[in-house]
């Protein structure tokens, strides 16, 4: 059974005001006087804990810069926690950005394989999916031309078709996606729903509170990297919106 555990996870980025470290700075390290280019610590996540098990539909809400996407990337393994532990049982699939890594020189078909491999698929598991993805994308013979000749709409369609062809155990979604022209959008929405229903664990970050209410059963509200509320999604959303309204009134 798939499961995700975060225990007391902190994530701190150490950044300098100026990106460059001069050699003098590096050698002296503020030995004699305070550095003019000090390291600032940014606490992206503070003491976050999560326990997700099969069947969970989990929503993450919060204002801009609250750490929602960062938390998702940490779950995906892109960032490692500065303190605390992350434990994942099962295969993670993530849908963050459609534009992820197309190889412009490669054909559509090759890109389907490439994206599959990036997400940990094997040639055997991809063989079954290749035709299905090709058909869904409606790109026909264009699949054999290099991706650099695709129109923006075709790229989106291909990206969406690949991204949603996975059979996820643990699915992380950043903003529920919509893609393509009107007729494709209808198809896309249906496929998205199907995929999400197949996942054992689903974690969604979104500003669209209504769809979160429909999709999720539990959730958290993040604020400045801290968990402000955790529980049934309705209550978390209510807490969040009343806080926002309260602030607006003040």
């Amino acid at each position: 059974m798939a499961a995700v555990f975060l225990e007391n996870v902190h994530l701190t980025f150490r950044v300098r005001q100026q990106y460059q470290i001069t050699l003098k700075e590096y050698l002296l390290r503020g030995m004699f006087r305070a550095s003019r280019n000090p390291i600032r610590e940014i606490h992206a996540l503070r003491d976050v804990g999560l326990r997700l098990r099969a069947g969970d539909r989990f929503g993450i809400i919060g204002g801009n810069g609250a750490g929602k996407s960062t938390l998702l990337k940490l779950l995906a393994g892109i960032y490692a926690p500065t303190r605390g532990t992350r434990r994942v049982v099962g295969r993670i699939s993530s849908l963050f950005e459609l534009s992820l890594g197309f190889e412009m020189e490669a054909s559509g078909r090759q890109n389907i394989l490439y994206r599959g491999y990036l997400q940990g698929e094997t040639p055997r598991s991809m063989r079954k999916k290749l035709d299905e993805i090709a058909e869904f994308s409606e790109l026909g013979e264009f699949l054999d031309t290099p991706v650099r000749y695709y129109s923006a709409g075709m790229l989106v369609r291909l990206a969406f078709s690949i991204a949603t062809a996975i059979e996820p155990e643990i699915l992380l979604v950043d903003e529920v996606l919509s893609a393509g022209d009107l007729s494709f959008q209808e198809k896309a929405r249906k496929r998205m729903r199907e995929m999400m229903s197949k996942a054992q664990i689903l974690v969604v970050v979104s500003h669209d509170l209504d769809s979160l209410r429909r999709i999720c059963d539990r959730g958290i509200w993040l604020d400045h990297g801290q968990v402000r509320a955790e529980g049934p999604i309705d209550q978390v959303i209510t807490a969040y919106t009343s806080h926002v309204e309260h602030r607006r009134a003040a």
């Binding site: 326990r51 926690p81 500065t82 994942v88 509320a229 955790e230």
Partner: peptide, 28 residues
């Protein structure tokens, strides 16, 4: 902030099987 999450003991430990990839990411 007060502790919000349920205590660790109240949830059953996950079953580990060898077929599933288990990833433990420790601090850097």
């Amino acid at each position: 902030l007060p502790p919000i999450l349920p205590a660790a003991e109240s949830l059953p430990a996950p079953k580990e099987t060898t077929t599933k990839p288990v990833t433990v990411i420790r601090p850097r």
